[in-house]
Nucleic acid binder design. Structure first.
Lengths: 337, 337
DNA sequence: TTGTAGGCGTTATCAT
DNA sequence: ATGATAACGCCTACAA
């Protein structure tokens, strides 16, 4: 590489490397004139301070890592976009990782990141089922981590979540008020805490309105698109629910496809509401009633929290928990007639 | 930081740092026994080789940067997901940047990346209108760059694109065959090469089928959601097109919203087709005819191309251009009755 | 097979 | 105000 570095700059200007270096720091003693000369030359030669050298020296990377279950996902895209925005404004860069819901990947990413590559981590976890004590084992030298949306409840670290229980309760209640008697709950992974919380809201709403809870109406779905649709078709035919509450966005889509296939009419035969932050929910056929999660705000809040931790570690207690509110938006898919 | 480094490992094992270092390289001479001892201790102490130190030493980062106009975008999400997958499999990490269509941001990202932080760049450009000679000025020391989707035609670097001209021609032809006589073209930025190519397909199809081209039917849209809808409503009322071809996904959504607002019925009053890679296009009301771009494949191909450049620079000529085919999918939004 | 030493590019400390 | 020097953690000639 014919890269320009401080040494070359110094030689070109007949100065020492320390003087040149000083020109790029703000506080150091250096005459205005030399500083100007140096900056001019730096610009001319297109000098870029070597990131690795400075970070090796300073022991921080101005980089944060974002770990999510999937990237091709409307919800996480929105969150990442906000995170990038906050980070960029602070002069930070973001590394992005997708676990594809593989727990081992998560562990490997996290462990790897503890090599100085990132100063902090924002993560929506995967694999609640597993032993995530690996995070505690990093103990003292663990990087600052902020969980968002999907969290590990037994790990002490700040988190930003939405009011899932209340939203689920409200969504279920909404279905009941629209006349549903047999409401199916579409779960994606019963062991995820977020799934449990959401399911509890559903269960409690049923109880509150004296609708018997039936275990078979909890339909456990997979990560496989086609398989979900098949499973749903079978379930809808066998169990004849009149309402469906989906715990994640893509299961609402699967529900639509399943209904199209077996000629169930939404909302006449089956009313549907789901967690989602899709902007085009109003354009669906029929328009989809949603529990709209503030995805962007979630990302923004998580990023701001992480920066607070980085800038002033003692300001943020590990038990910090910020809760943002989702919003129930009623549309045609749950309308009465 | 109480970080474990090679020195600490060495001390703990009563070895020299070089021996310890060797344990982590594959080719060096080291006895199997010592190597095992070292690796065991490394595991026990949770040793992670410092990324910055090794990369400073080796002058490469095992990191690639991905720059896109926006992150909260179905199309780019899919692309990024594939890029991440390819990179991850190669042991590379990805840095993600959004320009939000601000050209200055692009320049600043790119320049900054030439500090060793990334080994290569995958980019979908913004701001074709501007002088992008800054890329040439980096000359010899320019990082390997692969353009995808949106490219600068005057910069010599490998690129992966879709067959935009053919697709546009086919989409326009499709509208004509469905009976449209006044077809509006919704442009997002006339100066983008991708916009120009797509528009040319539209223009040539009109010509081929002897439909007069009317300049006012080219509707230039913005990045502002609401403003687009207003603009479209006005255009639809004033110009009374009977078909709309949208050059990007979100303009199809804007068209739907505009039609809902002014009570135009798709496809009766207005047929709509648009570039899109939305999986749920069939669920829209009415289901949306699309030119479906192979977003994931595009990302995958771009990533593979970049790695080829990194691994064997001479293998890839700067004029390399890979073209992937989009697919026209007819749905209700362009049906005849 | 293992150890010693120098350097990757930067910055902070200390001297001048 | 500027320069010399050491150190961040790792890797690799070269020496032993």
């Amino acid at each position: 590489m014919d890269n320009v570095n401080i040494k070359k700059l110094a030689k070109a200007l007949h100065l020492s490397t320390s003087t040149v270096s000083r020109a790029f720091r703000d506080n150091s003693d250096i005459s205005a004139a030399t500083k100007a000369r140096i900056l001019a030359m730096a610009k001319e030669l297109n000098y870029q301070p070597n990131h690795y050298a400075s970070n090796l020296r300073e022991q921080k990377s101005k980089t944060i890592a974002v770990i999510v279950p999937e990237l091709a996902n409307n919800y996480f895209s929105l969150a990442i976009q906000s995170i990038e925005r906050v980070a960029s404004a602070k002069g930070y860069h973001i590394l992005v990782y997708a676990t594809n819901d593989q727990f081992e990947k998560e562990v490997s990413f996290i462990k790897h990141l503890h090599n100085g590559r990132a100063d902090g981590i924002i993560m929506s976890v995967s694999g609640e089922a597993n032993n995530h004590n690996y995070l505690n084992e990093l103990s003292k030298k663990r990087l600052p981590i902020v969980f968002f949306d999907r969290v590990y409840e037994d790990i002490e670290t700040p988190r930003v979540i939405t009011n899932d229980y209340d939203s689920s309760f409200a969504a279920t209640k909404h279905l009941i008020q629209q006349g549903c008697k047999r409401i199916a709950y579409l779960a994606v992974n019963k062991t995820l805490s977020i799934g449990k919380t959401r399911m509890q809201g559903y269960i409690d709403a049923l109880k509150k309105f004296k609708i018997p809870f039936e275990d078979e109406l909890i339909i456990d779905c997979t990560n496989n698109y086609k398989e979900n649709i098949d499973r749903l078709k079978k379930a809808f035919i066998d169990l004849k629910p009149d309402g469906v509450f989906t715990s994640v966005e893509r299961l609402a889509f699967a529900t639509y496809y399943a209904c199209y296939d077996i000629n169930l009419v939404i909302p006449k035969d089956l009313k549907v509401i789901g967690f989602s932050s899709l902007e085009i929910a109003p354009l669906l056929n029929p328009s989809l009633s949603t529990v709209t999660q503030p995805a962007s705000e979630l990302g923004k809040t998580a990023a701001e929290l992480l920066f607070k931790m980085l800038e002033n570690p003692t300001d943020v207690t590990p038990t910090t928990q910020l809760v943002l509110n989702s919003k129930l938006v009623q549309r045609e898919s749950t309308s009465k007639d």
